[in-house]
Design a protein around this nucleic acid. Structure first.
Lengths: 330, 330
DNA sequence: CTGAAAGCGCTTACAG
DNA sequence: CTGAAAGCGCTTACAG
């Protein structure tokens, strides 16, 4: 049975309030009293109940991290950044997977609210729009990643998705490619939109036509990358380069290229996005757009904690750099 | 401002207790009353505070997952198994990284205790021994993974580490190898001990000598695998096969082999352990010992929840199968 | 079938 | 410098 404030008070022959004062370092206590109390605390191995404290302060010192899927190689480093930063500030973090399912996302947000987390960092699904204001209203600060919401209590950490896509396609153009397709991910996500935009912008700026048929949407997994690339290359053999929404799709595209007897990068150049840990291990190594995932997690968390410490202060969106990493595939 | 039990009671013109009854589905309520209460709940969008409930029930419906490092490719699938199983049972989970540092591990356990988690799943560091009984005494059920503690309130999920090592080395022997080294991981872990034991047992049973110098300990990361393998192969060129403590070490060993001009698997056969996602993607693909990581997470969580639901019941250790996966590297 | 009281372990004004 | 009282939002006996 763990010791309580009252146990300590009794042992030190002082009031509960006095113990509370020394526990919270509030001063205004005579040295001798403090000494007696500290001794009692040590002897009883007293640890204050965060639960009881939270009930009155409305601060649990916990935050929620809501992401797509921790087994997606993009997320572990992000999570590590969040966990390290949160731990350093005394916060514990609940990790939850949405699998991109909006109804699951809502359920998770409810559950986190029920547990009275102080704030939330979320990689939102596309449908979050409607539910988010409710949470902000329930006075949880929220940091959304890669998605701007103009809503009080919500701030954003964004990566330059559009710019990254443009860098990737410009690189392909520089390599002499003129017929460039895209394996485009699922359409109702911001990334999809931004990366397609970047792709189109790069083509347009270099006077290349944007062919709608060459943009193939689909789930951002390797299997689909392979199928999409295969179909695209068979129907439009003139395509000599592919830009993929993410590295998993790019890996699938590489596989399809090999199956079709295309040499990489001569007959088929491929650029991915994210620079997941796999990207530099496969052969040929994947040219891709890197975002510093650990840093992303750290910054999102710092942003959240800042909102917690200075409620009401405006919190401008943060933009994270991306960078083209040229390897063997393009 | 979220609605409280009292708000609902007032609105429905009943007592707090009555509302509590319908919220908790306790029956013994007239239909008309229940109806009125439910309506009030819906109108006010009332959600019970888990915090307040936990303060009296001593159940937070949270658990802690304490692992080495979520960016280690072994862990995300394990974590996913834990998170899915916990979520299905209504638990939220705090994820924490120890980096194998015992003092950090203690700090984390303290913090989880302060937050009054209902239980803990932990991949313990070697030094946990002393601290664990304290936690069990504080009445948190604990499930340790890959480490047996004979301690009330603590149960274990074990993988057949020793057997896996033996399978790996026997495979190498079957392939005709007689001089087999080992990249052995850090010495004060159970895995290290068990895998070294399995390695030695396989050699001994086939009448092969165990040469102490051929067992090279070190941190279980790729860089060290490369260095260890390089040193071993240079000093003892007769070594034709390596068994690695884990896949990361094995990948490093493969790299060293290539650098030294050894053909794999003819001049150098390598077997790893874990079957991380990378293992089947590298070239040559890695022969390794697989453990179902998602299942490991699920079972550990089910074990923990069972302990929570039936306190005092003995909980026998669970043994997880391992399986040799033969690919190109051996 | 329904309610009033006590208490979970803290903190927050308010007194002295 | 120290303490007694009220309350955070619930549940748990105990009455009626």
């Amino acid at each position: 049975m763990p010791a309580t404030l009252r146990d300590v008070a009794r042992k030190a022959s002082v009031s509960i309030k006095t113990v509370s004062r020394v526990v919270n370092g509030q001063g205004g206590i005579s040295d001798s009293t403090r000494w007696r109390v500290q001794e009692a605390i040590a002897e009883l191995d007293y640890r204050p109940s965060k639960l009881a404290r939270a009930l009155v302060t409305q601060r649990t010192e916990t935050v929620g991290l809501v992401l797509g899927d921790i087994t997606n190689p993009f997320f572990p480093e992000v999570a590590r950044g969040v966990l390290d930063t949160a731990e350093a500030q005394g916060y514990n973090v609940f990790v939850c997977n949405t699998d991109g399912d909006p109804s699951r996302e809502i359920r998770i947000l409810r559950s986190l609210t029920d547990h009275a987390v102080d704030g939330i960092i979320i990689f939102p699904t596309f449908e979050l729009e409607c539910a988010l204001p409710e949470f902000a209203r329930l006075s949880h600060p929220v940091v959304t990643v890669n998605r701007a919401f103009d809503c009080p209590g919500v701030s954003n950490v964004m990566m330059q998705s559009r710019r990254g896509a443009k860098l990737a396609v410009e690189h392909l153009i520089r390599q002499g490619h003129r017929a460039i397709g895209m394996a485009a991910g699922l359409s109702p996500t911001v990334h999809h939109l931004q990366r397609v935009q970047g792709y189109c912008a790069a083509l347009a700026e270099h006077g290349l036509p944007v062919v709608e048929d060459w943009i193939v949407p689909g789930p951002p997994v390797e299997k689909h990358g392979r199928e999409a690339a295969r179909a695209l290359l068979l129907q439009h053999p003139e395509i000599s380069a592919l830009f993929a929404y993410n590295d998993l799709l790019a890996l699938g595209a590489l596989k399809a290229g090999q199956e079709l007897g295309r040499r990489v990068p001569q007959d088929l150049a491929v650029v991915g996005f994210d620079d997941i840990p796999l990207a530099d291990r496969v052969s040929p190594a994947l040219t891709t757009v890197r975002v510093n995932k650990y840093d992303l997690g750290c910054r999102a968390t710092r942003q959240l904690i800042q909102m917690l410490n200075q409620p009401g202060e405006p919190c401008p969106p943060l933009w994270l750099d991306v960078e083209l990493v040229v390897r063997a595939s393009a």
